[in-house]
Design a protein around this nucleic acid. Sequence first.
RNA 1: GUGACCGUAGCUCAAUAGGCAGAGCCCUGGAUUGUGGCUCCAGAGGUUGUGGGUUCGAGCCCCAUCGGUCACCCCA
Length: 420
Amino acid sequence: MARFSTPRGTHDILPADWPFWRFVAGHAEQAAQLFGYQRIETPILGPTELFLRTSGEGSDIVDKEMYTFEDRGGDSLALRPEGTAPAVRAYLEHGMARLSQPVKLFYIEPMFRYDRPARGRFREHHQFGCEAIGSEDPYVDVEIIALLAQLYRRVGLRDISLHINSIGCRECRPHYVEELVRHLEANREDLAERDLERLQTNPLRVLDSKEQQSQAVIEEAPSILDWLCEDCREHWKRVQHGLTLIDQPFVVDPRLVRGLDYYTRTAFEFLADTDGSWLAVGAGGRYDGLAEAIGGPPVPGIGFGMGVERVVAMVKDSGAEIPQQMAPDVFVAHMGDDAADRALVDVMRLRDRDIPAVMAFGQRSLKTQMKQANALGARNAAILGEDEIAGGTVTVRSLTTGEQRSVPEHDLVQDIAAEN
RNA sequence: GUGACCGUAGCUCAAUAGGCAGAGCCCUGGAUUGUGGCUCCAGAGGUUGUGGGUUCGAGCCCCAUCGGUCACCCCA
C-alpha cells in the first residue's frame, strides 16, 4: 500500500503556518483596499490558448512549464501559470470598459508552473496580484508600485529594493532591439554560448544574463533608455518623478527586462537580499499590448505579482511577532456521562454568545484535560464533575491566575462574559 | 531541463570500521480519590523514502527510482 504525499513542488499549508499566511494575506488585502483595488477571483483553469497568446511561444512558461491537458470534451485547458491574462480576460469578457477607468483588481490565488523545485520556487505557489486596467497614466504605475512597497513595510520586511526600467513600446523597442542585436553580433566571439542562443530567440534576455563571460559585452551594450520614443520617454520621466514625490527609493536598471512578451514601458522588480543572493519577491510591469493580443480592443494596463510563499518565508525568518490563532476563552473539562452532557450544552451556550469555547472529548483524567486546556492556551477551565452536577454549579478556574471559583451553571456565560 | 549534495519516529537529530535502530521534543498514561505550567517514571510511535544488488550480515557499499536542497536555467 503506497503512502501518499503532496505532488512534487506542492505543499500543505498547515495550521501552524496559518498565522503567517493570514498575516501576509490580510495585509495584502488591506493594502489593496486602501489603494482602491477590488477583489476578483478567476477560475484556476484557463483556456490553454489564452496563455499561449499572452506569454508567447518561446517563453519558458509556455514551452515547458504549463500544466496543460485536454478535458473530456476535448478542450485544451491549462492550470493558470500567472494572473494577469485571466484578469484582462475577465475585464474584456464582462465589459469592464464601461466602468470608470482604470479598473483596479486584486487577487490572491494559486499559480502552477511545471518547474524544478528549489528554495522559494514551487510548482504550486500563491500570488498576490494587482492589476490596474484602462489607463496609461504614469501615476497609475507609481501607485501600484507604492502599494507593493507599502505592503512590504506593513509586514515588517526591510532590505527590499525596487529596481525599475522602461522597456519601451512596440514603436520604439524594435529599433532598440535592432541596435542591440547589431552590438551583440559584432561581439559574438566574446559572448557565452548560452547567450548566443538567446541572441537568436530573445535578444533582450541577453541583457540580464548572469554568464560571466558575457558581462563585458553587456556592459557596453546600448541602453534601451536611450532609444525610447517621445511618448515612452515622457512616460518614463513621469514615473520617476512620481516615485520621487512620494519618497519611494528606486534603482534604475536598464538591463531589467521581462520574460513575457506583452510587457511595455514600465518594468519593475522588488528584490530581497536573502543570505547573499537576491530573490524577486514581487515583480510586474505595464502590458499595454495584452488586451489586443487576446482579441480585445487596445486597453492599457499594469500589474504585479507577489510570491506569497516567499514573503511568508521571509516574515517567518524575521522573527516578527505574528498574531496567533484565537485561543479559547473557556475549556470545558468534565468527568462522567452526565457531566459530558452538561459540557456539550454549556459549550454551545458560550459559543452562542460569541465566546470561543471548546470541550474535552473522550473520558480522560481531569489532569490530562487540564493539560490540554493549558496547551490550547485557554484562559479559563470550566470543570464539571459529580459535585458540580449535584450542586448545579460549575467550577471556573482561571488558567492565568490559578484562581478558582464556583458559579451557578446558568450564570456561566454571564460570568465569563463579565470577565472580558 | 543540466550538475552536485542529502533522505533514519510527527519534528530536530544520533548510531565506531558493514554486526540487535537510539535520544530529545511532541503525544498517551501515571507520581494518595477531581486540577494545567516545572520535575520525575512509564508507554506508544520505524519495512532507515522506495525497488533491486553485493555480503554470513546493509541505516552504512553499488544501481535505479521518488523526494528535498544548492548552483545553473527561469522566475514570484
